[in-house]
Amino acid sequence: MIKILKYTLFDLLRSRSLLFYLAFYLAFTFGLFGLSADIQKVLISMMNVMLILVPLISTMLGVMYYYNSREFTELLLAQPIRRRDIFLGQFMGLSGSMAMALVVGVGLPFVWFGVGTSPFFVQFLILLGSGVVLTFIFCALAFFIALRNEDRIRGFGLAILVWLVFAIVYDGVFLLALALWSDYPLEKFALATSLLNPIDLSRILIMLQLDIAALMGFTGAVFKKFLGTALGSAVAVGVLVLWVLGPLAAIHAVAARKDF
């Protein structure tokens, strides 16, 4: 598996899409610091950007990488290598290097502008951590979609749909539901539905740490009220880990039964 990971990294470093990804974050974060020296403000802006962008790029690159490396995969399948190792190695290579690009691209400017000595260091780490976890989740979802669909166009379509649902549609439907049934107590419903969306979950996780009630939104407030900051964070982290393990298990199951 380590070797497959190695060659995946090798392959990705050549494709340059990863370098663009890194360069974008570097430029964007430095740009934000140019606009404002307030670390908390930059942190919140970065959170808003990352919560949309990380899932989008992860799903797109994930699907693209799977389809582009099909030849490589077929070559590997005929060799004495365990199937699980092939797909796990590719997944780790892709998501690992994307996570690295994110950590370096966002982390470097923050460190440059002194996040290490500011009171927001923990929040900064949580922002990076949730970015990394989102990368893993959406890469895994992308691999799963690509494995299930031989047709590239269909695969890309479904991947965009998944991103659209989690990043945009979900919140819209959620707000609509809250508005429609505003006469009923919806706290439990809100709590449950936000667990089902990893993007919401990451937002809540960061918000709980930032402690800005105004920006927390309904679910954040409910989370805090019901679970408190510590327990709420623990639940959010736990569910996020499940969000990584679930798609990974699905990849494993599909890969084990697939014909090539």
């Binding site: 392959d11 050549r14 494709s15 490396s69 099909r70 030849e71 490589f72 077929e74 070559l75 005929a78 060799q79 004495p80 290598i81 365990r82 199937r83």
Partner: peptide, 20 residues
Amino acid sequence: RWAYREAISYLPQIARFPDN
């Protein structure tokens, strides 16, 4: 199983390789 493939050399029908 997978280790048995050590005993096999295989030539696929279509020579498709990682392009880069």
